[in-house]
């Protein structure tokens, strides 16, 4: 199925989870946070939260700023 990760289209397995989406972009294990369709998904729930087709996944970290 198609999902959008940080604005880019990705093709993931139909039963893909948030953890699978993170693996697809090779995200580091620490210092990141995830929102799916505008809702925060807690780290503890990454492996168990299934993505819907066309889900918008945002993966954020801290950058220089402020």
């Amino acid at each position: 199925m198609k999902v959008e990760i940080n604005g880019a289209a990705h093709d993931l397995a139909d039963e893909a989870t948030v953890a699978d989406a993170l693996a697809a972009i090779e995200a580091p294990g620490k210092g990141i946070a995830v929102a799916v369709d505008g809702q925060v998904v807690r780290r503890a729930d990454w492996a168990s939260t299934r993505l819907a087709a066309n889900a918008a996944v945002e993966v954020l970290t801290a950058v220089q700023g402020g």
């Binding site: 620490k30 946070a33 970290t61 801290a62 950058v63 220089q64």
Partner: peptide, 17 residues
């Protein structure tokens, strides 16, 4: 010290943290 939150970028990673 402040930091901003942005989409992760493979190039910069978590360097400032």
């Amino acid at each position: 010290t402040t930091v901003a939150m942005r989409r992760i970028d493979a190039r910069t990673g978590t360097g400032v943290l």
